[in-house]
């Protein structure tokens, strides 16, 4: 640790070190800690008329949390959100693992650049616009339905936006990069000779992936899954734009609470969601036997 500081001082000078410490400190305190603490504080207080705030009724209570745990509908939506986010995560992983492997170990030269570009270009467009695009594709008289009718596969348009299918599809699409890049990064560092060596020793492709590539890519898979899950569980845009009106997501419930001016309940719900994401992250770490340190690499 002392070495670290000495090198930092030598390389950056006192002003440089101070600048970094202050900017990071300000960011952590004002952008992360204080907002979270304020939200946590909100979640523990009852909703009160303005004149009672700071008064004798304004005390810490778990009432808001009790509302959540006693509301069966909200609990159901919460678990559905977990389940759907898991589906998004697994779907994205299934799609992205081969893409990442192809990019990192199979494709060469210009092909890599072209594929990367293909992956990144959609992200030059705002997330909302991309979701609107899916709305257009999946609409009752949308491109997909018209195409299927044109091919004669269906006679009447399918309502793709019933249930959660469209939301899961849209989310998977939206978060593919967050899954591809962490996995691609770790796979890049895998020595190609190890693949050849495993092959040479008689391993089938499936075996090579199971025994060599996947263990090596574990930290990337853990990062990709954690990010995708958190994004899926935490987004409000995708369910709002692609979900059916009859099928709510937990983020929409939080959103409604805030819109109905019950910030305290909204804060409590948001805290529950945040806890879920933290728990999920640690579960992933445990599952992939990856340390927090490796995760950040």
């Amino acid at each position: 640790m002392r070495d670290f500081w000495n090198t930092a001082l030598k390389d950056l000078g006192k002003i440089g070190v101070a600048y970094i410490l202050i900017t990071v400190g300000v960011w952590v305190v004002f952008m992360i800690l204080i907002p979270q603490l304020i939200m946590f504080d909100y979640s523990l207080r009852p909703m009160l008329p303005l004149r009672d705030i700071g008064g004798p009724k304004d005390v810490w209570t778990l009432k808001n949390y009790m509302v959540f745990f006693t509301n069966r509908l909200h609990m159901a939506i919460f678990f559905k959100t977990i389940w759907s986010s898991l589906i998004v995560t697994v779907t994205a992983l299934t799609i992205c693992y081969p893409i990442a492997f192809y990019l990192a170990k199979v494709a060469r030269g210009a092909k890599i650049g072209l594929l990367m570009l293909g992956l990144i270009i959609p992200y030059w467009i705002n997330e909302l616009l991309r979701l609107f695009a899916w709305q257009i594709i999946l609409a009752d008289m949308g491109i997909l339905n018209q195409f299927l009718i044109f091919l004669g596969i269906i006679a009447d348009p399918i309502n793709f936006r019933m249930g959660n299918g469209a939301v899961i599809l849209g989310m998977t699409y939206a978060y593919i990069l967050f899954m591809v890049f962490p996995i691609y990064n770790v796979m890049e560092s895998l020595d190609r000779n190890q693949l050849d060596a495993a092959r040479d020793l008689g391993a089938s492709w499936l075996r090579i992936h199971y025994k060599i590539v996947m263990p090596h890519a574990k930290p990337g898979i853990a990062v990709g899954c954690t990010m995708t899950f958190m994004l899926a569980a935490g987004t409000v845009a995708a369910p709002q734009l692609l979900g059916s009106p009859s099928s709510f997501w937990f983020t929409q419930v939080i959103n409604t609470n805030f819109e109905c001016a019950n910030w305290n309940l909204g804060a409590a719900y948001a805290t529950v969601l945040m806890l879920l994401c933290v728990v999920f992250m640690f579960m992933m770490l445990k599952l992939f036997k990856v340390g927090l340190k490796e995760l950040t690499q």
């Binding site: 020595d191 000779n193 190890q194 050849d196 060596a197 495993a198 040479d200 020793l201 025994k211 060599i212």
Partner: peptide
């Protein structure tokens, strides 16, 4: 055949 690689390529 079995190959021994220049960088050994141990797992």
């Amino acid at each position: 055949t079995a190959m021994i690689f220049q960088n050994l390529a141990l797992f």
